[in-house]
Each structure stands twice: as structure tokens, then as C-alpha cells.
Nucleic acid binder design. Structure first.
Lengths: 247, 247
DNA sequence: GAATTTACATACATTCATGAACGTTTACAA
DNA sequence: TTGTAAACGTTCATGAATGTATGTAAATTC
């Protein structure tokens, strides 16, 4: 084959991404050569180098194609206006987990991202970009949590940034473990119950912002003299959450 | 240098493991050659091949050295007898997170395991072994949760196996995210609050075992005719948790 | 319909990691 | 004290992956 039509070229590109998903999952990203990806797609390395600059570019394109539906989920959830933001949050989490269990492409790429790739060297730049996407998604979820606080579904002193970090870690951990071994537990069936357990924890006892921050400093500091204050600055820094401070 | 004393050889071995931690973290496991590890340790590849069969063997030894303290934590927690297993569980989780924030070796190796290694090819066998260790740790934690149920701290119909999976995912997710960027939030200071939130969820609304299992099957199945039952067997399998079924 | 560009295939030069072989010196056992 | 084996260092052959350079026939463009 030589010069093919525009649509045929687009098809070739998709087939290369499909092939990358299969080969990366089977052999790991770093271990697989572009020749293997090309062979799996039924073309030669020339086609790969035509559509993608190098392996990192191919990897990034593969990740984008698979993760965009998840990002859309968070985007929509942060947009809806409802009287129960907690219900929105719950639905978002359940939908995200359900989507993973239903879409084999998402499964493959998440398995690759979690267990079959190293965020170093060539992929370091990709990791930074992906990190920004994750921060954006977390910011969107935090807005939902903030609305839950405003609606009285969560306590006023809820540390929204930390709560997002916790929720994000929980979902990440579930996906991490399940992609490693989908037979370890039935994620599709258990997703609602798993999410409900965590949401119950958020409602019952969420992480709180430190008392000292909102109130004006008292002259007669509460139990201030009871313990030695070695490093007040570092102690203050300990309870801050990097980047997005709670409003 | 040539033939050295026994202790000197042991020192060389430790230095190789130390070097592996640094180089693997900086460049990723697959991308680093054993020559780089040797150079970082101040020896040649000959020394590496003397102490370890190949890169996978070196990687396994590095992981074992770093993860054994964590395993010991779970082992001890499953051994203690107290009137509040929930308190034991909480302490175990907080200790595990705190240990990660305090020990730089644990930090490095967990960062490598989470973000700088691919579980494929040469490391596939290592992954299987590591997977068994994790299952054992989870079984130990499940015994603690089962005692919490027996002590009345958790509902009788708590799905202990799923609860362990959830807790394990939460901790894994926290470590996964924090090792990727330790400045994203202050894990050391927030660990108690983060654990308390999840434990509160476990106490308030843990995952439950399906009603049908303990009770005898009803003739007039509840809403059974309301929806078509396509694959009753697979539906049953959906709510089971692989391997360790709840007692 | 000629010119140009596209969408690949093929060939090549370079680099680099691996594992094994081989050498060497010294700690240690007898 | 002498032989043996431990604890490395050094060398080599092999293979494989990368990026680039070049070839080429068909699809577009004008």
C-alpha cells in the first residue's frame, strides 16, 4: 500500500491507537518497540512515524482518546444545578466506576496507565500534562462539594480541598486495584455500595479546616502554654493543602 | 577491589539496593540499565550480577527490603486482642500512612512501585509474588474487621471482604497520589482526619452482604417477575467477592 | 493533466543493553 | 601455607531499538 485516501489514513491512525492499547497492555509501554505496535496494526514503522512524532506522542494520543469521556463526566457534574449536590457527587462517582467496567477501551488504557507504564524520561512531559487534567477534574469535583456545604449537606467547616483529595484517592485506588485484577471483586455490582460507604463518611465526619484559620487570633490562646511551640510556622504549614486553598 | 570480607560484601549489596532506589526513581525501572545502577553504587556490572541474578531479582530484593515494615504493621494489628477492633484498625491505617511520610526509603520504593515500574515481562513474576503478599495483608485486615463485627462495632451484615477492598483501595489511592506529588497535600498532618472520615463511613454505612445469601430463598421472590432474569448465575456471581468469602 | 503532496514502505547508521566468559586478587578453611 | 572459592573487574559477541533518510505510487490540487 502506498498513498491512501484521507479517511483511510484516519482509519490507519485509529488502528495504530488500537494496536498500541493491546501491545502496551500485554508487554508494557517501555518494553514494546514501535515495530511491534506497527506489526500489530498491520503496517510498518513508517506509518507510526508518519502519524506520531515518537512513542511518547503515540502514548499521549492513546490516553487522550480513552480518558476524555471520564473528563466529560466530571465537567457535566460540575455544571448541573440541583438541590442535592451530594446526590450529584454520588452519581458522578458511580458513573465513573460503571463506565470503567463497561468500556473495554477505558479498561485497557487505565490498566496501562496504572500498571504498564513508567512516568519517567520520555513520558515525563506527558505525565505533567495528565497531572494538569487531573487537577482540573479535582477542582470541578471540589466545586460540587462546596455547593454541598452551601446547601447544608456537609458541615460548614468541611475542608473541601482535603475532601476532594480523599474522594479522588478512593476512586483511584478502586480503579487501581480492580484493573490489576478484575476478578478480585465485582466492581460493576458493588460500585453503588462502595461509593455510598465513602459518602456516608464524608457526611458523618468530613475532614475539617483548622479552627485557628477563620477566627481572629485570641490573646489568651486556648491551651497555648500547655505545650511547647517549637515550630509554629511549620505547624501552620502542615494543615494547608497545596495549591487550591479552601475559600 | 577484588575479594572482600563478608561484611564488606554485605555492604556492597546494601549499596546496590540504595543505588537502585535512587536510579529507578529517577529514570524508571525499565529504562535504567544495570550499568547505571552499578555506577551509582560505585562498582561495575560484575558486582551486580554477582549479588543478583538479573534486574528482576534486584528489583524484588529492593521491594522486599522496603515493604517488610508495612507488612509487619498489618501482622501485628491482626494479632492484638482489644475490646475496640475499630480503634486498632484506625491506628493501623494512620501508622501505615505516617510510616510512609517518615521513611524516605519507603517513599522512594513506593514511588517506584506506583509510578516508575511496569508489571510486565521480566517483572511479571515479581508482581505475582507481590500480589500474594497484598492478599495476605488484606486477609489480616479482614480478620480485624470481622472482630469489629463480632464486637458490635460494625453491623452484623457487614460485607467484610468488600470492606477490606474499600479500605485497601483508599489507602492505596492516598499513597499513590501522595507519592506522585508529596506537595499536593500534607499527608503526615492529615492522615488521622483522612482515616477517621473513612472509618466513619464504614461504621455508618458499610457494604452489606446480599440479603438472599443468609436467609432461605423465598418462593414469592421480591419483585422477581418485575424484570427478566437473563443470567441468574452470573447475577449471583456479581455480588460475590473473589477468593476470601465472608465467614 | 502536470505538479505537488500525502501516506506510507524500506534501508541504513548509530547507539546501547544484555549475558556470558574470562581474569584476578584476596579472605578463609584445612 | 596452600588450595579453594568468594567477590568482584573487564571484555566480547549478539541483538535490538531508534531516528532518519530515502523511495514511491496514488490522491489532491490547480
Amino acid at each position: 500500500m502506498v498513498r491512501r485516501t484521507r479517511e483511510a489514513a484516519a482509519t490507519t491512525r485509529e488502528q495504530l491507537l488500537d494496536a498500541a492499547e493491546r501491545v502496551f497492555r500485554d508487554r508494557g509501554v517501555t518494553r514494546t518497540s514501535l515495530a511491534e505496535v506497527a506489526a500489530e496494526a498491520g503496517v510498518t514503522r513508517g506509518a507510526v512515524y508518519w502519524h506520531f512524532r515518537d512513542k511518547a506522542d503515540l502514548f499521549a494520543a492513546m490516553c487522550r482518546r480513552a480518558t476524555s469521556p471520564m473528563d466529560t463526566l466530571a465537567e457535566r457534574a460540575s455544571g448541573v444545578r440541583t438541590d442535592s449536590p451530594i446526590a450529584t457527587l454520588r452519581a458522578l462517582c458511580v458513573d465513573a466506576l460503571a463506565h470503567l467496567t463497561r468500556d473495554p477501551r477505558t479498561q485497557a488504557v487505565f490498566e496501562i496507565m496504572f500498571h504498564r507504564s513508567e512516568l519517567a524520561g520520555e513520558l515525563a512531559g506527558i505525565a505533567e500534562r495528565h497531572d494538569r487534567d487531573c487537577r482540573q477534574a479535582r477542582a470541578r469535583v471540589e466545586s460540587v462539594i462546596a455547593r454541598a456545604v452551601a446547601a447544608g449537606e456537609l458541615p460548614r467547616d468541611t475542608h473541601t480541598a482535603l475532601a476532594v483529595e480523599a474522594l479522588y484517592a478512593y476512586l483511584t485506588g478502586l480503579m487501581h486495584g480492580w484493573t490489576l485484577d478484575p476478578t478480585s471483586f465485582d466492581l460493576r455490582a458493588c460500585a453503588p455500595a462502595l461509593v455510598d460507604t465513602f459518602v456516608a463518611g464524608l457526611v458523618a465526619n468530613p475532614p475539617r479546616v483548622p479552627r485557628a484559620a477563620p477566627a481572629p487570633p485570641r490573646r489568651d490562646g486556648w491551651r497555648l502554654a500547655a505545650r511547647p511551640v517549637a515550630h509554629p510556622a511549620s505547624r501552620q504549614a502542615r494543615v494547608t493543602v497545596g495549591g487550591s486553598a479552601a475559600a
